[in-house]
């Protein structure tokens, strides 16, 4: 497939494409996780469909429900040169493998004085909106961003997902790759085959001059919608899609806010000690004198993801709250 600006894809098929291309390009790439092989239908939502048939069931393996064993095996294999892409179905299930991720994957390079390292990619999906309740839809990224040694990538569209997943697989450090489940089927720009998107580089999704809306994953779309609405009143919001949240692209963020002098950070994780707190703090530290208003932070309500539909809808920050936050920076 060639670029073709009109070509569209979905997050789900972009992930599949990236894995397919990585497996084809490098015999050391292996994929494993629950239900990922075609004998188990290539994933509960089909993200890995066709991969075991094309690349062999020795390289694309379904596992038992054993998250510690999955991440442990990925770590071990990576120590001696294999490039595992481990899938932990839902982000909430990383909790069962936290020892492997936080005590081992993140730290082995440092604790070995650089003698070993862990080039693994851990894929997972999450996101509220599908009525899955308190244990299936959390955004826990702040825990991982807080941990030295891990990189955390969180794309919002197919083209970014493809390019970033390839970069994660190439990367010499452990990368968490967070997929937004409610966005899986949303059409978006198709990836350019083989094209990597660098880790740690944000994208300006919409240029503007009056306020910077900083976001990632699904909330990028909410920010864009609010920006379009405000534009009709002559307020031009710049929207930044972070794409990577560890390491953060300070240069892009600070350059934008230095111009607009106002910022709103939006994410689905709760505000409390969230990525938005880190970003707001960096902006204040660097641009204190330039800011026209304190940085605004929006996140989900400080409670477990509720099941009941009206609660679930109100739980996530919506367009109204984003708009109100923008107006607070303008008043």
């Amino acid at each position: 497939m060639t670029t073709g600006t009109a070509a569209t894809s979905t997050l789900l098929s972009a992930v599949n494409q990236a894995l397919d291309d990585a497996l084809a390009a490098n015999p050391d790439v292996v994929v494993f996780g629950e239900d990922v092989a075609d004998s188990e239908e290539g994933g509960v939502l089909g993200a890995t469909k066709g991969l075991s048939s094309r690349h062999g069931s020795h390289r694309v393996r379904s596992t038992p429900i054993s998250e510690q064993a999955i991440i442990g095996a990925a770590i071990g294999a990576s120590l001696v040169g294999i490039r595992p892409v481990a899938e932990i179905m839902l982000m909430n299930f990383t909790t069962v493998a936290m020892d492997m991720i936080v005590n081992h994957a993140a730290k082995l390079r440092f604790m070995s004085g650089g003698k070993t390292h862990v080039p693994i990619t851990i894929r997972m999906m999450t996101g509220a909106g599908l009525g899955t309740g308190g244990q299936h839809a959390d955004f826990l990224e702040a825990w991982f961003v807080h941990t030295a040694g891990l990189k955390v990538v969180i794309p919002s569209n197919p083209s970014d997902a493809y390019g970033l997943l390839l970069s994660c697989i190439d990367d010499e450090d452990p990368c968490l790759f967070i997929e937004n489940m409610p966005l899986y089927w949303t059409p978006g720009p198709a990836p350019v085959r083989g094209q990597r998107i660098p880790i740690g580089k944000a994208r300006i999704a919409r240029p503007g001059k009056d306020v910077t809306l900083i976001s990632y994953s699904r909330q990028v779309f909410d920010a864009l919608a609010v920006a379009d609405k405000l534009s009709k009143e002559g307020i031009e919001a710049e929207v930044i899609d972070l794409r990577t949240i560890s390491p953060l692209d300070d240069a892009t963020l600070l350059e934008s806010v230095a111009r607009t002098r106002r910022a709103v950070v939006i994410h689905e994780a709760t505000r409390q000690c969230g990525v938005g707190a880190e970003i707001a703090s960096r902006i204040h530290e660097n641009l204190h004198r330039e800011l026209r208003a304190p940085v605004q932070r929006l996140g989900s309500a400080f409670c477990p993801v509720p099941f009941s539909k009206p609660l679930e809808t109100a739980f996530v920050p919506g367009a109204q709250q984003i708009e109100a936050a923008v107006r607070r920076t303008l008043s």
């Binding site: 309740g133 308190g134 244990q135």
Partner: peptide, 10 residues
């Protein structure tokens, strides 16, 4: 049973 907050899984 859980005020609608837990849902079918809880």
């Amino acid at each position: 049973s859980c005020k609608g907050k837990g849902g079918p899984m809880h």
